[in-house]
């Protein structure tokens, strides 16, 4: 059976305000989906909710992994089950070396049953693999000794996220604006990396409003979000259309969702 990540009728609220209003999405391992939509339409919220962010309250609906309901799972349990998210704004952890952080993360994800006081992956073995991946991604090995995302440039952070994905080998990866802040070459490299990790081995959800990353990772399915719902789903051509012509057509054809979008924008402006 193909691994499947299934989102059903997901309603998510932040500080009591509903941001997602019933999202359905099924991602199978081996597929690449694009998630597009204007700013504030709820794309990142969906990603963060799938990853279990504590501030994103799931009011209704379910997230299922291979038929198992993971809606209430802790983020680390989701990560260990094979769900990964490359964050738009990764956090820096001063004083913690990238290599130490990743060794801990990699051990936990590869040995999901590991208890807190059990051994980590052997240092030598881990370092060898880490260096291989870094070389592949053309990341300077000094990175391993730097503190996690501390003082990293925007591009360095994004590449560090890709590196983490490469080490953790997830079943499902959500890439939230991984292409923003990267120049053309870096996007190419990131795409190659994704290809090398194996598109066929992952279900990928690419959140973007550019097409740079999509050029190299042609989506099998494109979703367009508006006002907290997925209003259209299509093939690669839908992504191309959105990129070329913007969201006006979608807004015209989905006036109710466009009205919600307006409402949300007004509220945000008022705050």
């Amino acid at each position: 059976m193909t691994d499947t990540l299934k989102i059903t009728n997901l309603h998510v609220a932040v500080e009591g305000k509903e941001i997602l209003r019933g999202v359905d999405l099924t991602l199978r391992r081996g597929e690449t989906h694009a998630l597009m939509g204007p700013n504030g339409s709820g794309k990142s919220t969906l990603g963060l909710a799938i990853m279990g962010h504590p501030n994103y309250e799931i009011v209704d609906g379910t997230i299922e992994l291979n038929g198992e309901n993971i809606t209430e799972w802790e983020p680390h349990e989701r990560a260990r089950a094979g769900v990964f998210m490359a964050f738009q704004r990764p956090m820096s952890i001063p004083g913690v070396k990238m290599a130490d952080f990743l060794r801990h993360a990699t051990t936990n994800v590869r040995r999901p049953e590991r208890k807190e006081d059990e051994e980590l992956l052997p240092m030598r073995e881990f370092r060898k693999e880490l260096y291989e991946k870094m070389d592949q991604l053309k990341i300077n090995r000094d990175f391993a000794r730097r503190y996690v995302n501390d003082g990293f440039s925007g591009g360095e952070m994004k590449r560090a996220e890709i590196l983490q994905m490469a080490m953790l080998r997830p079943k499902f990866a959500i890439l939230d604006e991984t292409d923003s802040g990267l120049d053309v070459d870096a996007v190419k490299l990131a795409s190659q990396s994704i290809a090398e990790i194996g598109r066929s081995k992952m279900g990928i959800l690419i959140i973007t409003h550019h097409d740079k990353l999509l050029e190299h990772n042609r989506p099998d399915v494109t979703h367009v979000m508006l006002g907290g719902r997925i209003v259209e789903t299509g093939g690669a051509e839908l992504a191309i259309e959105m990129h070329k012509h913007g969201y006006d057509r979608v807004r015209r054809e989905h006036p109710e969702d466009a009205a919600v979008e307006n409402e949300m924008k007004k509220e945000e402006a008022a705050v």
Binding site: E74, R80, M91, I93, G95, F101, T106, V109, Q164
Partner: peptide, 30 residues
């Protein structure tokens, strides 16, 4: 301890306890 930091580490497979210890260790690293 920043909750976002804890979430980030948890999203990488660390338990909350491990994440807190990591952040504290990092704090003293300097």
């Amino acid at each position: 301890v920043d909750d976002e930091l804890i979430y980030y580490a948890q999203a990488r497979g660390l338990t909350r306890n491990e994440a807190v210890r990591l952040v504290v260790t990092g704090f003293f690293q300097q």
